[in-house]
């Protein structure tokens, strides 16, 4: 099976029904995408498929053949993505485990909505963070939007 991940073509051997999450982690060594629940309830495994945020723990790899996948490893170009810079500026992460998913969900939001309101953030960022970084994640999304994060 052939996939395009972070702009690069890759071939994978996994069984077609293997969730994308485990192909990324166990076969391709892209460990930034995290396993939280396996039932699409927490969002730790969020990646972009053709620009849409999806929860990769329940997405069979066969379903995304030929589509463009972006993981946290592909969020930055030469420099950090405006969201990553905003994340550092407000010192958002604590344990950090859910933050890849938070960032990818936020990247999808900003691509669609360059200046999201608090309500937009509430509606779209439904990832779970046990450490309780929500106020800073919200602040970081607003900051990145101000810095043109939606245009990237």
């Amino acid at each position: 099976m052939k996939l395009t991940i972070n702009g690069k073509p890759v071939a994978v051997r996994a069984e077609p029904n293997t969730p994308l999450l485990w192909v990324l982690r166990d076969e391709l060594g892209l460990l930034g995408t995290k396993f939280g629940c396996g039932i699409a309830a927490c969002g730790a495994c969020t990646v972009l498929v053709d620009g849409e945020a999806i929860r990769s723990c329940v997405m069979p790899v066969s379903a995304i053949e030929g589509k463009a996948i972006t993981t946290i490893e592909g969020l930055a170009n030469e420099t950090l993505h405006p969201l990553q810079r905003a994340w550092l500026q407000v010192q958002a992460p604590q344990c950090g485990y859910c933050q890849s998913g938070m960032l990818m969900a936020s990247a999808a939001l900003l691509q669609k909505n360059a200046n999201p309101s608090d309500q937009d953030i509430d509606d779209n960022i439904t990832n779970i963070c046990r450490c309780g970084t929500y106020p800073r994640v919200r602040a970081a999304i607003h900051l990145a939007a101000k810095n043109g994060g939606g245009k990237v």
Binding site: G32, K34, I72, A76, L80, P93, G96, Q99, L103
Partner: peptide, 12 residues
Amino acid sequence: DLPAKVQGKAVY
């Protein structure tokens, strides 16, 4: 610890 954590590079 945060720069690695925003880039998916932190090792849990």
